[in-house]
Amino acid sequence: KLLSSIEQACDICRLKKLKCSKEKPKCAKCLKNNWECRYSPKTKRSPLTRAHLTEVESRLERLE
């Protein structure tokens, strides 16, 4: 599967780190437990900047 097509777990399953069936409108866990089942939009991760990478590398060197 391509990364862009990976389905996201519902908010509660993601928060509780449960295996989500990803069914809509309610996944199996939410249906069974009568929880409100919501699927928040995916958040875009910002790409690493060179400055951040350099900072992490220098912190790693100090720890070694």
Results as ranks from 00 to 15, higher is better:
Cys30Met: 06
Leu31Phe: 10
Lys44Cys: 01
Thr49Gln: 09
Cys20Pro: 07
Glu23Ala: 07
Arg38Gly: 13
Ser58Arg: 15
Ile12Glu: 10
Ser21Trp: 00
Thr54Gly: 10
Ser58Pro: 00
Ser4Gln: 15
Tyr39Val: 04
Leu2Asp: 10
His52Lys: 11
Glu7Gly: 14
Thr54Arg: 09
Lys32Gln: 05
Glu61Met: 13
Arg62Glu: 00
Lys29Trp: 04
Arg59Pro: 04
Leu53Pro: 01
Leu60Pro: 03
Leu15Ala: 14
Lys16His: 06
Cys10Phe: 01
Ser40Phe: 02
Ser40Asn: 05
Leu53Cys: 03
Thr49Val: 06
Pro47Asp: 08
Leu3His: 14
Lys16Asn: 03
Lys22Phe: 04
Lys1Asp: 05
Lys26Cys: 14
Arg59Asp: 01
His52Gly: 05
Leu48Ile: 01
Leu53Thr: 10
Ser21Phe: 07
Cys13Phe: 04
Lys22Ala: 07
Glu55Asp: 09
Pro47Met: 05
Lys22Asp: 10
Thr54Lys: 11
Ser40Ala: 10
Lys29Cys: 11
Cys27Trp: 01
Ala28Pro: 00
Leu15Ser: 14
Lys29Gln: 04
Asp11Cys: 08
Glu64Phe: 06
Ser46Ile: 00
Glu55Met: 11
Cys30Glu: 06
Glu36His: 05
Arg50Tyr: 02
Thr54Pro: 12
Val56Trp: 00
Leu48Ser: 04
Lys17Leu: 04
Thr49Met: 08
Glu57Ser: 06
Ser5Thr: 14
Leu18Trp: 11
Pro25Ala: 00
Val56Asp: 03
Glu64Cys: 07
Glu57Asp: 01
Asn33Ala: 12
Lys1Ile: 15
Ser4Val: 14
Glu61His: 12
Arg14Tyr: 09
Lys42Arg: 13
Ser4Arg: 15
Gln8Tyr: 12
Ser4Lys: 15
Ser58Ile: 11
Ala51Glu: 01
Arg14Leu: 08
Asn33Lys: 14
Lys19Asn: 04
Glu7Val: 15
Arg38His: 13
Asn33Glu: 04
Lys16Tyr: 04
Cys27Ser: 03
Glu57Gly: 00
Leu18Ile: 15
Lys26Gly: 07
Gln8Cys: 15
Cys20Tyr: 04
Leu2Lys: 14
Glu23Ile: 08
Cys13Lys: 02
Asn33Pro: 08
Lys32Ile: 04
Lys24Trp: 11
Thr54His: 04
Lys17Glu: 01
Pro25Cys: 02
Arg38Ala: 13
Asn33Cys: 06
Ser5Cys: 14
Leu2Gln: 12
Glu36Gln: 15
Lys26His: 09
Ser21Leu: 02
Leu63Cys: 01
Ser4Asp: 14
Glu55Tyr: 10
Ser46Tyr: 09
Lys17Ala: 04
His52Gln: 00
Ile6Gln: 13
Lys22Val: 03
Glu23Gly: 05
Leu31Glu: 13
Cys10Arg: 01
Pro41Glu: 11
Ser40Trp: 05
Cys10Asp: 02
Leu48Met: 06
Ser46Thr: 15
Cys10Ala: 06
Ala51Leu: 06
Ser46Asn: 10
Arg50Trp: 06
Ala28Cys: 12
Lys19Gly: 12
Leu60Ala: 09
Ile6Arg: 15
Lys26Glu: 11
Cys37Trp: 02
Pro41Arg: 10
Asn33Tyr: 07
Leu48Gln: 02
Val56Gly: 05
Lys26Trp: 04
Lys17Asp: 01
Ser46His: 00
Asn34Trp: 07
Asn34Arg: 13
Ala9Val: 03
Ile6Asp: 08
Cys30Pro: 05
Lys1Leu: 11
Leu18Arg: 12
Ser5Lys: 15
Ala28Tyr: 12
Arg14Pro: 04
Leu18Pro: 03
Leu3Cys: 13
Gln8Pro: 13
Leu18Glu: 09
Lys16Gly: 06
Ala9Tyr: 10
Thr49Leu: 05
Leu2Ala: 06
Lys16Pro: 06
Cys10Trp: 04
Lys19Tyr: 02
Ser5Tyr: 14
Arg14Asp: 08
Ile12Asp: 08
Cys20Gly: 04
Leu18Gln: 14
Cys10Ile: 02
Pro41Asp: 03
Glu36Asn: 08
Lys19Ser: 01
Cys20Asn: 09
Cys13Ile: 02
Cys13Met: 03
Lys42Met: 01
Ser4Tyr: 13
Leu18Asn: 13
Thr43Asp: 06
Arg62Val: 06
Leu60Tyr: 01
Lys1Pro: 10
Glu57Ala: 02
Ala51Tyr: 10
Glu55Pro: 04
Arg38Lys: 14
Pro47Val: 02
Ile6Tyr: 14
Ser21Cys: 08
Cys13Asn: 00
Glu64Lys: 05
Cys13Gln: 06
Arg14Thr: 04
Ser58Glu: 10
Asp11Ala: 07
Glu55Gln: 11
Lys24Leu: 14
Ser40Gln: 08
Asn34Gly: 14
Cys13Thr: 09
Ser5Pro: 15
Ile12Arg: 14
Lys24Ser: 08
Ser58Phe: 12
Leu3Thr: 15
Ser46Leu: 00
Leu3Gln: 15
Asn34Ile: 00
Arg59Cys: 03
Ser5Gln: 15
Leu18Lys: 15
Glu36Tyr: 13
Thr49Asp: 04
Glu55Ala: 13
Glu23Asp: 11
Ile6Glu: 09
His52Thr: 08
Lys26Tyr: 11
Ile6His: 14
Leu60Gly: 05
Glu61Phe: 13
Leu3Trp: 05
Ser4Ala: 08
Leu48Trp: 06
Lys42Asp: 04
Leu53Glu: 05
Glu57Ile: 00
Asn34Cys: 00
Pro41Cys: 09
Cys27Asn: 05
Pro25Trp: 02
Trp35Met: 12
Lys19His: 08
Glu7Ala: 15
Ser58Gly: 12
Ser5Asp: 10
Arg59Ile: 00
Glu23Trp: 04
Ala51Lys: 13
Leu15Thr: 15
Thr54Met: 11
Lys22Ser: 01
Tyr39Phe: 12
Arg38Ile: 10
Asn34Phe: 08
Cys30Ser: 02
Pro25Thr: 04
Cys20Val: 01
Arg50Cys: 08
Ala51Gln: 12
Lys44Tyr: 06
Ala9Gly: 04
Asn33Arg: 13
Ser40Val: 13
Pro47Gly: 06
Asn33Thr: 07
Lys44Ala: 01
Glu57Pro: 00
Ile12Gly: 07
Lys26Met: 10
Lys19Phe: 02
Lys22Leu: 01
Arg14Met: 05
Leu53Lys: 00
Lys26Arg: 10
Glu23Asn: 11
Leu2Tyr: 10
Lys17Phe: 05
Pro47Trp: 07
Arg45Asn: 00
Arg62Ile: 09
Leu60Glu: 11
Leu48Gly: 07
His52Arg: 09
Lys19Trp: 03
Leu60Asp: 02
Ser46Gln: 01
Thr43Arg: 11
Cys20Ser: 02
Glu23Leu: 07
Leu15Met: 13
Arg62Asp: 07
Pro25Leu: 09
Trp35Tyr: 09
Glu57Tyr: 02
Cys30Arg: 04
Pro47Cys: 01
Lys44Pro: 11
Thr43Leu: 13
Glu61Ile: 09
Cys37Asn: 00
Lys44His: 06
Glu61Gln: 14
Lys17His: 15
